[in-house]
Amino acid sequence: MFIKQLSVFIENKEGRLERVTYVLKERNINIASFSLADTAEYGMLRMIVSDPDEGIRALKEEGFSAKLTDVIAVKIPQRPGTLNKVLKILHDAGLSVEYMYTLATAGKDTSIIMKASDLTKAVEVLTREGYELCKAKEAYELNNNGSK
């Protein structure tokens, strides 16, 4: 049920972001989705990739501080108010969202990546409310048309 997200610590220095994507490209790893959070001195690149285990191995070999973190991806219809509804469910359950970003917008649903304060509980309340969660394998393979 959980998806392994690959996070990398990146200094705000020229060429570091390019280096991360280069390392993944060399291993033929696809980036399905990502979000980049930035502060004055460093950035945090969070990614859903086609092969997270291979991804982290490659980045660590290159000397990056990288980490696999469990996240969930919840599918929500593309209509006004649907995101609010999901967040209200989590809020009512006493859960907070550490961060979130869009996984995919293909088709009629959007998948939202979320890191909630208690993932197991988040899964439980969302499933109870009838939401479908994206499976790990499905997430890794999203937006990937293979190498050319």
Binding site: Q5, S7, F9, A37, Y42, S65, K67, Y99
Partner: peptide, 8 residues
């Protein structure tokens, strides 16, 4: 290393 900015 944490992937949460607030922890860093």
């Amino acid at each position: 290393f944490s992937d949460e900015i607030k922890e860093l």
